[in-house]
Design a protein around this nucleic acid. Structure first.
Lengths: 208, 208
DNA sequence: CTATAATAGTGTCGACACGAAACAAAATAG
DNA sequence: CTATTTTGTTTCGTGTCGACACTATTATAG
């Protein structure tokens, strides 16, 4: 009677089946999207990684527009990202600006052409066409479900969330604007919509 | 008054914002998952692509366990897949069996070690931990939402669905079992749970 | 105020991924 | 029976990415 032992130890809870299903679907969605992005990028003359970096840079705030942050966001090493950045700069899609306070730090700003490229490539046609088949209610539910899954995965794994400041515990609403408790700096109306590498959900905002 | 013209032509409908949000989340979920899979694969001594191929082979039916099908599923060329298969065979994770009817066709069967590797790696820890934080109701809703998105994207883009036979229009329930109208062969109870490369949803099962 | 770390970024190299193209073998069409 | 199509393999060039060594700047310790 050794049957039980032949079952993988990974089957330790009843949620594994659901997890496996979700794992597979997310993987396939990712592959689908990547194939689409790959084709669009090929037409635009950029590499998929380069586009993903540019896409991030186009929507992060001033604390998060450095090569290091890009590396954290994409899960790559800084050496790899350095090369990606160089290629994007050569293609005239972004500019490097050395930080005034800390001369080691480089800020990355997309050029007008860079922003245009992101706008033209960003929602892949496959996604647009897929979403187009849903009702507005389904779309809203979809966004909420995906956000919940992403947040749950990030929180459960102690990963950086890279979310906009307006959901961040460090962001305080003050008279005439916002204020970041972490950097001790005021934030403009536009700032709080951008992704931040220091973002943390407030402890009570769990997914319970 | 040229402001409108500076806006990308991609913003042709009100759904683009939602699409962009979903695009970005799916991309991040995919990256998160890939980073996790990459780490697990590294520990197991296989490449991520090799694992994805093996994972597919472990859950597809007898019509769909060929190099060509793997290439279609992963969106790669057959030449690339051929290399991946060879590597997996060398590592003793799958066997090749030449088809009896058509001697060109190769069927790929995971070995016991191959199946074990899939079971140990398949739901990435990040997903398991993330799902673990949700209620059963949230989990069900999540699976449904993801499946709907996947199907919508596949249908909208004319892609193969690679779904199990029991949702396929060609699958007929008969006395004592199932029957595939396409291959004109009977299907066993286990067969209809597996992924098929010829799968098609019935026309009436749209996403409304 | 120096010596030593820590941090941000760059450059190089090797292993691997992957598309393209040429190829072999088997099945099918005419 | 030949021509074409289909399935799979091999080869080659380019791109990706981690590992590692390196520089420059800032922070810290004594």
């Amino acid at each position: 009677m050794w049957f039980v032992n032949t079952v993988s130890i990974r089957y330790y809870c009843c949620m594994t089946d659901t997890s496996k299903t979700i794992h597979d679907i997310v993987e396939r969605l990712g592959n689908l999207l990547r194939a689409d992005v790959r084709a669009a990028c090929h037409a635009q003359g950029v590499r998929p990684v380069q586009f993903e970096a540019l896409n991030y840079i186009a929507q992060c705030n001033r604390y998060s527009d450095t090569p290091q942050a890009v590396a954290e966001y994409l899960g790559l090493t800084k050496g790899t990202v350095s090369q990606t950045i160089k290629a994007l700069e050569t293609k005239g899609l972004l500019r490097k600006c050395i930080d005034k306070q800390d001369k080691r730090v480089v800020h990355l700003k997309p050029t007008a052409r860079g922003r245009r490229l992101v706008d033209q490539t960003a929602p892949a046609d496959s996604v647009v066409r897929g979403i187009d088949r849903m009702t507005v209610g389904e779309q809203t539910a979809m966004v909420e479900a995906l956000q919940r899954l992403l947040r749950a995965m990030q929180q459960a794994n102690g990963l950086k969330t890279f979310a906009p400041c307006h959901t961040c515990r460090f962001n305080q609403q003050r008279e005439g604007g916002y204020f970041c408790e972490l950097t001790q700096e005021p934030l403009a109306e536009d700032d709080v919509k951008l992704l931040c590498r220091e973002h943390q959900y407030s402890p009570r905002m769990g997914t319970g």
